[in-house]
């Protein structure tokens, strides 16, 4: 993991974050023209080690082929994997998705890349991709927002608030509860039925779904910081791509040179397909080049992280034509 340090970042709130460290990783080789760089933005609990959490998608010979592309993935500010966050700066100011992207922009400048071939991300990563397309349209050739939205639904905010509330009562156990709720929202009725059904652990002490959630909750507390969880979920909740514009179509008015591919999943109820369609609609209103796929899947929101052959086909296919 590499560190990029800079003096300060002006935040959207008006506050200044100083000094700032961005912990990041790169995979593959940047070509001479610096035209093969792809930025992958991780989701809420992800990190810069994209070949690990998205191993089916990123790597040598994979759809995002690191033999062809120079892949960059940085840990978001506010997180707990090496970039400046609540564990390093106290009190940690309130941050937004645009602050995360502004920090990434400094990293991309630092790497000497003037235009990214693509910005790709799912969930909160997709929010960052969309933010890139509006804030720095001249710096991105294409964007692939996956299972994401330009603004989180009330339902999404509600789940995040329950998680934060639990953390406020007790940081460690609360974080576990928040993660358990998170995992419920990342799946679907059908996915849970397939994965667990009503099967019980040996001895009939508890259902498999119970022990799964408990395990997810407790293992998360060993790898994630409760304050980061609060800080990042707040940023997700507050994100509204169109807030400074008169509607979403106006927000994309400057993004005409970008090629988009918007992807949703039929069983994703946390970031439902209609939210992706809103993006497509706004892009089309601007006659912006966009493809849209609503992939049939029973896996829920988690589908984008799984080994989905259709997602792999279209990401590989789309990138080779950018």
């Amino acid at each position: 993991m590499l560190d990029f340090k800079f003096n300060e970042l002006k935040l959207k709130s008006g506050e200044t974050l100083a000094p700032v460290t961005i912990a990041y990783q790169t995979f593959g080789t940047l070509n001479k023209e610096k035209s093969n760089a792809i930025l992958i933005c991780h989701a809420l609990s992800g990190d810069s080690n994209v070949v690990e959490w998205w191993g089916k998608m990123v790597g040598e010979g994979k759809p995002i082929d690191t033999k062809k592309y120079f892949v960059i993935c940085s840990n978001v500010i506010g997180g707990c994997y090496g970039s400046t966050g609540p564990a390093t700066v106290q009190p940690f100011p309130s941050i937004t998705i645009s602050d995360m992207v502004n920090a990434q922009k400094k990293l991309i400048d630092h790497l000497g890349i003037s235009r990214l071939l693509s910005v790709i991300g799912g969930s909160m990563g997709g929010m960052q991709g969309l933010q890139w397309s509006v804030a720095y349209p001249q710096m991105v050739k294409s964007v692939i927002p996956i299972a994401t939205t330009t603004k989180l639904s009330a339902q999404g905010i509600a789940f995040n608030e329950v998680g934060r509330h639990a953390i406020m009562l007790n940081p460690k156990d609360g974080l576990a509860v928040a993660r358990m709720i998170g995992h419920i929202t990342y799946l679907s009725d059908e996915a849970m039925h397939k994965k667990f059904g009503r099967r019980q652990k040996e001895g009939g002490v508890e259902f498999e779904v119970e022990s799964y959630l408990k395990h997810q909750g407790s293992s998360f507390t060993k790898r994630f910081d409760a304050n980061s969880y609060v800080s990042i979920t707040k940023a997700i909740d507050r994100f509204d791509l169109a807030e400074n514009y008169n509607g979403l179509a106006e927000a994309f008015a400057g993004s005409k040179e970008i090629k988009f591919m918007v992807v949703s999943f039929t069983s994703d109820w946390l970031f439902p397909a209609y939210q992706s369609w809103e993006i497509v609609k706004a892009l089309k209103t601007n006659s912006i080049n966009v493809s849209y796929r609503n992939i049939g899947s029973t896996a829920g929101h988690d589908a984008f992280l799984l080994d989905d052959p259709q997602l792999k086909t279209i990401i590989g296919g789309f990138l080779s034509n950018v």
Binding site: V290, S291, Y292, T313, G316, G317
Partner: peptide
């Protein structure tokens, strides 16, 4: 998926 692989824009 075939269209996207060919580089066509499809919705």
């Amino acid at each position: 998926d075939l269209c996207i692989t060919k580089g066509l824009s499809v919705i």
